[in-house]
Amino acid sequence: MTSDPHNLSGAYALDALDAAERDAYESHLAECSDCAEEVRGFRATAARLGAAEETHVPEHLRRTVLDAVARTPQERPVVVDLASHPRTRWATRALLVAASLALVVGAAVFGVTQRDRADDMAAQQEAITAVLSAPDAAMVSSPVEGGGTVRVLQSAELAKAVMVVSDLPKLAEDEDYQMWTQSDGAMHSAGVLPRDEQGSRGAHVMDDVTGVTAVAISIEPAGGSEEPTSDPIVLIETT
């Protein structure tokens, strides 16, 4: 019943098509920008009909929903098309890694956008995409002493790593988180974590990790130190 697809916009927007027609109409929509525009307006109109039904919600539902949310991962944003990558014996593993990381990387990239660091963002996004798509991409995750999580996504082939920090507790004004790479048994500064990533998320690309055996974060006096002055709160061995 798709002889005149233009006419289906109303029924589509009201969810009044059966599954087969819905699928057919959606493929039509992809090619018909006028139809897509009309459907957008119809959806917004239908939402007004829905919103007019607003009513009191049982109190207990909020807790139930938020508890479920706390246990539920989000879908990955569209960052990179892994399916187009050549298949290797690593591909499946890379795909799994990508799936598990996509949320956090996507979130981190978004965080960068929010801070208007446009150049950084473009470069970071490119690097993250490259590492994500690498056939040997591997991810290590570690909780951080004191709270938060650090994930390291790395590709030995590209000699690149991305460190993703999430929810590190906010520090006092006179302290900063400092990132380190370890090679030849010594720690080398990889920069101070921007303060606006405290309690939030951020992604940091490490461009040349050849010879790096671990990455770490320590709490240092504001502005950072030449070498760590305290034990790391997290240390992740790289491969």
């Binding site: 919103a51 607003e54 009513t55 909020r62 938020l66 706390a70 989000q74 996507g106 929010q114 998320r201």
Partner: peptide, 27 residues
Amino acid sequence: ARVARGDEQAFGAVYDALAGSVFGLVR
């Protein structure tokens, strides 16, 4: 935008803003 970054507190605010409409429509 914050919910997209995994912000559960922002999600709570979205819930508060829209739960009445969603529940009303669904019911």
